[in-house]
């Protein structure tokens, strides 16, 4: 059963052009020209109840614009959105009761007040019954360890604590849908892990539908079965994560600095794709060969001064998907036309 339905969603913005140079500056005093930016061009997808979907794309791809339209903050320029049967921008307040929202970089809590007070205010704003409030607070306190800092003003919390408080706050009113915008950004490894465990747990136990945007490959791998990949306002891929992971997620890049060399570097099951004054970028598939395997090959002919292994960023995966497509693996699901 689809709980979120998005069809041919579109959003355009007008952006002022900035003139350069002295004359341009003078001209800008009087007149300014605009051009249209298509933040979201034509996106359709549906999400079933209880699903956890990674909504992914590089910066400026249209991720947060889509989320804003799903939460009723923005009105689309075209297409339709339905969240739990409600059109968010037509009935924002009713929609607000159905959703929980966490923006990783901006807290929704009252900055100067002890954390508990934010919860109490949100209880009033969302009209949460007293018993339900207490139950939820007990659960969240237990899983998230809120009691460590419940009386500390929000501004004094560590980022990890603040994120825990923020996510608990977004769930106080038992929303069936949760939007998480970069929920692990800036967190250390332990805090990230804790966050992920919690998200998994509430998704499973409360059957909450989760839409997640992130730059962290780990987040997606651990949390989502499905991902919607967008770029330049369009859907590039919509399907199982395993497929993308198999195809691209196992590619690693090894960067090595080598000492003066006479013999060219030749490698098996790995390729040098960039070279710059003694520094080599080497691409290999984790499944075909391990990093140490590549390094062993190099040390047979060269001396390594320094090395790092880079994991693929979402950006590079997407750009590779663009370059190479899904040939031989799976075609991206074509955007549905009609209904």
């Amino acid at each position: 059963m689809a709980i979120i339905e998005v069809e041919h969603l579109m959003k355009e913005f007008k952006i002022a052009k900035r003139e350069t140079g002295f004359l341009g500056a003078m001209k800008g005093l009087v007149k300014r020209e605009f051009h249209t930016k298509h933040a979201v061009k034509d996106i359709s997808f549906t999400v079933d109840k209880g699903e956890m979907v990674g909504y992914i794309g590089p910066n400026g791809a249209g991720k947060s614009t889509t989320i804003k339209m799903l939460t009723g903050i923005l009105v689309p320029s075209g297409g339709t959105v339905k969240v739990n049967g409600i059109v968010p921008y037509e009935n924002r307040q009713a929609n607000a009761k159905n959703i929980g929202v966490v923006f990783g970089q901006r807290t929704q809590l009252w900055w100067d007040l002890p954390t508990i007070e934010s919860f109490e205010l949100l209880k009033e704003i969302y009209q949460v019954s007293h018993s339900r409030y207490k139950e939820n607070m007990d659960t969240f306190t237990e899983i998230l360890g809120l009691d460590e800092f419940i009386n500390t003003p929000v501004r004094q919390l560590s980022l990890g604590q603040r994120m825990r408080a923020d996510i608990a706050a977004s769930l106080l009113h038992d929303p069936p849908i949760l939007f998480l915008d970069e929920p692990t950004i800036g967190l250390d490894v332990v805090a990230k892990e804790r966050m992920r465990t919690f998200i998994k747990e509430i998704n499973k136990e409360r059957d909450i539908t989760v839409i997640l945007t992130t730059h962290d490959m780990e987040d997606i791998e651990q949390l989502c079965q499905r991902m919607v990949l967008i770029d330049h306002g369009q859907k590039v891929y919509d399907g199982e994560i395993a497929v993308v992971k198999n195809r691209f997620g196992k590619i690693r890049t090894l960067v090595v600095d080598l000492e003066q060399h006479s013999t060219p570097l030749t490698l098996e099951k790995a390729e040098v794709f960039k070279e710059e004054t003694g520094r080599y970028w080497i691409r290999f598939n984790r499944e075909d060969i391990s990093a140490s395997g590549v390094i062993t090959q190099i040390t047979q002919t060269h001396n390594i001064k320094d090395l790092t292994v880079e994991e693929p960023e979402i950006e590079s995966i997407i750009s590779r998907i663009y370059q190479e497509g899904f040939d031989g693996v799976e075609q991206p699901i074509p955007v549905k036309s009609g209904s």
């Binding site: 939460t71 903050i73 307040q93 009713a94 607000a96 009761k97 929202v101 901006r106 704003i125 969302y126």
Partner: peptide, 13 residues
């Protein structure tokens, strides 16, 4: 700085 959005994700005027 984007904090205005929080007034729009809540079920009040």
């Amino acid at each position: 700085n984007g904090t205005f959005d929080r007034f729009l994700v809540r079920p009040i005027n």
